[in-house]
Amino acid sequence: MIPQSTFWDRTAARYARSPIRNMGAYEQTMARTRSYLNADDRVFEMGAGTSSTALLLAPLVRHYTSSDISAEMVAIGRDKARDAGIGNLDVVQAEVGGHRAETDPYDLVLAYNLLHLLPDPGAAARQAHAMLRPGGLFISKTTCLAGQLYLRPLIAAMQFFGKAPYVNFLGADTLEATVKDAGFDIIEADNHPAGKRNRFLVARKTQADRRIGL
């Protein structure tokens, strides 16, 4: 399987042109996210692709940092931010685990359609925990494919030919346990759209880090 950064670099232009598949579910996710935002918040988004969501949310907060592993995705995102004239949005290239708040922790960390594309989704949750202030929020939406065994050979074949990224067949229970183990309390969990396998989570960083050994 080709490196993930290479896959997303090759996909970036087509990804940027692709319409959102379920606009109703996306708008529901954005509405729930907006309900947690405040004008003075600092926000960090992991795996932001071409920063389409960042363009929507950045005007609502003090500062927004949008990150992605793909240099091509980041370049497109920077062009979009410049063309939109959004001055409080930084678009940066970073791997999960490769970026930390330097002096001022973030109020929210967002990860949409990312955790199921990682071999270790716990690394993203732990990074979010490290970047957040006490009581800060980690908001994610994740496709949970546990039990969908018929998809494994299809995805494996597509990966062999460089047509699909790594996919982690997470279950909702495993996902929520992973986020809790990183030091969060889950305060909202739902599926958008209802009945599908897209798990929306809002988790709050606990005041005391209860992870073993930390």
Rank of each mutant, 00 (worst) to 15 (best):
A128H: 10
A172G: 07
E188W: 09
A146L: 06
D83N: 14
I2D: 13
E72M: 02
R78P: 01
V61L: 02
T11F: 15
V43T: 05
V43G: 00
I20G: 03
L56C: 13
R126A: 08
V92E: 07
L115S: 04
M23Y: 10
M131Q: 13
F138L: 15
A84Q: 06
V202I: 10
G85Y: 03
R126W: 00
Y112I: 08
A189I: 11
Q28L: 11
R199V: 06
V167F: 11
A101D: 00
K196R: 14
S52P: 08
Q28T: 15
S70N: 02
A25F: 00
G171D: 04
E72C: 06
A54R: 00
D173S: 15
H63R: 12
G24V: 13
A31C: 10
A25G: 04
V109K: 04
D68G: 08
A194D: 12
L137V: 05
L108F: 11
D79Q: 15
F184L: 00
D104N: 12
D79N: 12
M1S: 14
L214P: 10
A157T: 14
G162Y: 10
H129S: 14
L110K: 03
R204F: 06
Y26S: 10
A128I: 14
F138Q: 03
L117C: 00
N191K: 13
D181R: 08
H129V: 09
E45G: 02
Q159G: 13
A54C: 08
L55F: 03
A189N: 10
P134E: 01
P3I: 09
Q159M: 14
T174Q: 14
E176Q: 11
